[in-house]
């Protein structure tokens, strides 16, 4: 679906602030995958994803969406790419501008030149995906709560019905309720549309709970790109890159190092509990 070849991007060429944000990235993201993207601040995550919908032009290297080289073909390809690859930036509620929620969500589909009927269908569908009720469609987006605004903004991108949906820290700044709500909506969206989804996050918990594979960025390079369990298997490396590993993972790694036959790849409560129950069940009646 998305393929990069030696993708490199340098900011501010020729100024004192010149900095290479990403270097020699070669990745291949499969159609229908749900990919978590992690990395410390300044590791190049945001720069990388801004290439996927042609907001940034690579300094060198190529980027292919569905086999099309974005920058060797004519401009029309890139405009189409904006609709094929939906990008939700950080704090997307800051982009809301219309008088009503309906109009704001319809902004993208309208730019695509769709018919009124199709736009209407898409607005309602997107609203359902983010779990908001139809009654807010005629409200001003600025009268909504923070979490609701965020969801309207995400719906505005979902309404493009992109083949790939990329979200840059969609839960940043929300409380646990808002975070869980949004992440579970995105999970449902992925399952129902079978589209490719990329989730950028600092939270290993959020990533491990949601995605199928993980892309780890470190100092502008792609450090790992593998399944969730393969990546979490390399905990020490992740910690060295300045990333936070879930507490529960740390507990199980320590247990294993103390000689208990447990898996190192535990990153959710459910997995941890199952692992412990297995151990207890095998061994003993002492607690049963």
């Amino acid at each position: 679906m998305i393929k990069t070849e030696h993708l490199t991007y340098t900011y501010g060429i020729g100024t004192p602030f010149e900095i290479t944000a990403i270097e020699d990235i070669n990745i291949h993201i499969e159609k229908g995958d749900y990919v978590g993207v992690i990395g410390h601040t300044g590791s190049g995550k945001s720069t990388l994803i801004s290439h996927f919908n042609a907001i940034l032009k690579p300094t060198s290297g190529r980027i292919l969406i569905d086999g099309h080289d974005l920058w060797s073909e004519e401009k029309k390809t890139r405009i189409q790419t904006r609709f094929d690859v939906g990008l939700v930036f950080q704090y997307p509620e800051h982009q809301l501008f219309e008088e009503t929620v309906y109009k704001d969500i319809a902004f993208g589909p309208k730019n695509m030149g769709l018919s009124g009927e199709e736009i209407d269908k898409r607005v309602k569908k997107a609203l359902d995906f983010v779990g908001l009720s139809r009654s807010i469609l005629e409200k001003s987006p600025f009268d909504l709560s923070g979490g609701q605004k965020r969801r309207v903004a995400i719906a505005g991108v979902m309404a493009l019905e992109p083949k790939v949906l990329i979200l840059d820290e969609p839960a940043a700044g929300l409380d646990p309720r808002g975070r869980d709500e949004i992440l579970s909506r995105i999970r449902d969206y992925h399952r129902e549309t079978r589209s490719t989804v990329l989730l950028v996050s600092h939270s290993m918990e959020d990533i491990s709970r949601n995605t199928n594979s993980i892309l780890v960025m470190n100092h502008g390079r792609c450090a790992m790109h593998a399944s969730v369990s393969e990546v979490f298997d390399r905990t020490e490396e992740l910690i060295q890159m300045g990333l936070d590993v879930p507490h529960i993972t740390k507990v199980f790694i320590a247990l294993q190092e103390k000689g208990y036959p447990v898996s190192r790849n535990v990153y959710t409560i459910e997995q941890g509990k199952a692992e412990l129950m297995r151990l207890l069940g095998k061994d003993g009646d002492q607690h049963a």
Partner: peptide, 16 residues
């Protein structure tokens, strides 16, 4: 900075 971000966000929704 903010203006740059908003421009990109609207471009991502196909604004021309």
């Amino acid at each position: 900075d903010e203006t740059d971000k908003i421009i990109n966000a609207q471009k991502a929704r196909g604004a021309d």
